[in-house]
């Protein structure tokens, strides 16, 4: 079982000290279809919990990626610019979007663990 936590908007975050890596869930990439473009924030930008941090596009849809917690962007996954298909191929690994320095660790408490997220998905169907 990983330490990955999920939001209701289908983003995940994985913490390493105060740095959180953020991506979209396998369910989200499946819903979106083949990803053709990813728009990433600039490094240093402050992102706010549940507000837009990045944009991900398929041929027929565009979705915002919301940051599950607030923080400052310290790294972005540049490889997605050339190879957005990574989001489909490995959403929880090579397909990560951004790393942020988390402002307030208590914001993590409202997120779901793997098990809770799977239950959440089951309810959606």
């Amino acid at each position: 079982m990983s330490d990955r936590l999920y939001s209701k908007d289908h983003e995940w975050i994985e913490m390493d000290a105060d740095i959180g890596t953020i991506g979209v869930s396998d369910h989200a990439q499946e819903q979106l279809g083949d990803v053709v473009f990813v728009e990433l924030p600039e490094i240093g930008r402050a992102v706010v919990q549940n507000e837009e941090a990045a944009v991900v596009e398929s041929v027929k849809a565009a979705s915002e990626v919301y940051s599950p917690v607030s923080g400052e962007v310290v790294e972005v996954n540049e490889t997605l610019t050339d190879d957005p298909a990574q989001v489909n191929a490995d959403p929880h690994g090579e397909g990560w979007f951004i790393r942020i320095r988390v402002d307030d660790m208590s914001q993590l408490e409202g997120l779901m663990n793997e098990e809770a997220y799977q239950e959440f998905l089951a309810e959606l169907d």
Binding site: F37, E57, S58, V59, K60, A61, A62
Partner: peptide, 9 residues
């Protein structure tokens, strides 16, 4: 690049 356009965005 239709995701720029009104019918999607």
């Amino acid at each position: 690049l239709s995701t720029r356009e009104q019918h999607i965005r």
